[in-house]
Structures are given as C-alpha cells and as structure tokens.
C-alpha cells in the first residue's frame, strides 16, 4: 500500500484529507459527547448550562434510575436475542434468495425481481400485516419481531447486485472442481463476499436493535418488550406531556430529567456500537476478490 505516489501534491492531499475527516468525525461525535456528558450531569446543570462536554459534578443518578429494576436488563436480553437470531434469519433468507436471483439465466427471475421491487413500494399496511402475524400464531412470540421483516427488499437487491459482480471465471473454476450450486455459494461466493455480508449483518442487526414498532404491535407481554420500547417510553414521555390530556392525570408523572433521557441514549447506542469492531475485520477481506480476478 505504501508504494503509492508520494509526491508533494499527494502529501498535501493526505494532510488536507486527514484534517477534513477529523473535522467530520468531531462534528459527528461532539453532540454525542454532550449527550454522554449530560447523562452524568445533574438536572440542575443541564438546565442552566447550554452546551458542555465535561460535567461540573459527576453523578450516576441517571444510570441508577435506569437500572433500578430488572426490567431494563431483561429488555436488553430480549433485544440481544432478537438481534442475534433475527440477523441470522435475515442473512439466511437474503443470501439464499439473492444468490438465486443473481443468476441471469434463471427462468422466472425477472418476474420474481419485479415482485420484490413492487413489494418495496406497495404494502398492505399495519393492520393487514398484523392479521397475518396473528394468523400464524406469532403474537407474543419473539418470532413476530424476526419473521415479518426477514428480508428487506432494498438489501436483497443490493446483495444480489454484489453477487452479480463476482467474476464468472471464479464460479466456473468452482464448477470444474465439481462444486454443486450449494457448494459454490458456500465455498466460493460467500467467502468472497465477506465485506458485503459484514455490511448487511450490520444493517440488519442495527435494524433489529432499533426496532420498537414491531414489538408495540405484536408483543402484549411486557416481559418480552425489547430495549427500544423502554427507551422510547422514557425519551418521549416529556414530549407527550404538554398539551396532552394525559397530563391532566392526578397520577401523571413529571417528565424524567433531561439527564435520564441522555443516559437512555447512551444505553441504547453503546451495545450496538460494540458490534462494529467485530465486523470490521471482515471489511478488508474482499481484497481476495481482486487478486483472484487479476
């Protein structure tokens, strides 16, 4: 890699590039730093200081509040389970279908692709989908959070497109070695597609992690609520308060402290960010593809 042009222009470019990217990274992360700092600050400090990155007095009250009962821990368990199993389901359904659709000569391929594209734009909506899930007896089952979204048409098309880009020569070589289609997929196409698979693992996993609506619709048992339902509840509570009839309640609870809302974001973000480093090493593996090609 280091063999590339080390001209003066190149050096200037590199320096400018690094400065620019550092600025981007800071712009992305500073508001989050404020959120993290806020989660450790007192309500009083958050109210009086506009924006800050280091709280004057550290307090763990917000986190103590969030983790005061087992509900949140339990919901984290649910979220992790749904994210792990759900992503596996996603990958299985997406990869198999994308691989079949990547083959240009397949009879009926365009028809199926049209069905997929159509379904991306047209849908039955909330209630008809709910009735299907109920018909399958999936209500209150965690499968209701994984099966109805098993394939994202968007992701499917992009994965299919990546598969299509794999040079035919490589697959042909596999066939000569006596691979069946399944063997080809397993031994040649997937290993070559690690960056793509890592990407869509991340997309699907984040999708599951951030999903709350499915759980609201399909899960009646509060013990099975995923983390996002809890977090949304805390974040939106103050939003709903003003002008809402519910604030007329004698039992109305005052909106949670700003710091709790911020702690909630931290709790909801950090675990999924931790997934990324594990996937990252796969992002470089596709280099193989190029070298085989050459």
């Amino acid at each position: 890699m280091s063999k590339r042009n080390r001209s003066i222009a190149g050096t200037i470019f590199d320096a400018a590039n690094i400065i620019f990217l550092t600025a981007c990274a800071l712009a992305a992360v500073l508001p989050f730093v404020y959120v993290v700092a806020g989660s450790f600050a007192s309500d009083a400090e958050l109210t009086s200081r506009a924006v800050f990155f280091i709280p004057e007095s550290l307090t763990l009250d917000a986190y103590k509040f969030i983790f005061s009962t087992d509900t949140i821990m339990q919901s984290i368990g649910v979220s992790v389970y749904v994210t792990v199993i759900g992503t596996a389901v996603n990958l299985f359904f997406t990869v198999t279908m994308a691989y079949a659709l990547a083959r240009r000569g397949l009879w009926g391929r365009n028809f199926v692709l049209n069905l997929v594209i159509f379904s991306m734009l047209f849908g039955g909506g909330m209630i008809p989908t709910y009735l299907v899930v109920r018909g399958l007896h999936l209500l209150d089952s965690l499968w209701s959070l994984m099966l109805p979204g098993a394939i994202s048409a968007f992701n499917l098309i992009i994965v299919k497109n990546f598969f299509q880009e794999i040079p035919k020569e490589i697959e042909d070589a596999g066939r000569i070695d006596g691979c069946t289609e399944l063997g080809l997929l397993g031994r040649i196409v997937l290993p070559l597609s690690m960056p793509v698979l890592a990407t869509f693992t991340l997309f699907y996993a984040v999708g599951h992690w951030n999903d709350f609506f499915g759980a609201l619709l399909y899960i009646n048992d509060p013990q099975k609520w995923p983390l996002q339902v809890m977090l949304r509840q805390i974040v939106l509570l103050s939003q709903a308060a003003a002008g809402d009839m519910n604030s007329m309640d004698p039992s109305f609870v005052a909106p949670p402290d700003q710091s709790i809302k911020m702690a909630v974001i931290v709790v909801g973000t950090i675990p999924i960010l931790c997934v990324y480093p594990f996937l990252q090493k796969h992002f470089a593996k596709g280099v193989l593809l190029g070298s085989v090609k050459g």
Binding site: Y130, R134, F213, L217, N220, R232, Q233, L237, A240
Partner: peptide
C-alpha cells in the same frame, strides 16, 4: 393487566379493535 406504553397507545388501540 395488559400494559401498553403510553407513547404508542393509539396504534395499539386501533390494532386491538381490528383484531
């Protein structure tokens, strides 16, 4: 008890009627 998060009670209410 069938608890529903307040923030989404409206949607859940409609779904419950439909189901």
């Amino acid at each position: 008890f069938q608890w529903v998060p307040n923030a989404s009670y409206g949607d859940k209410f409609n779904i419950t009627l439909a189901s």
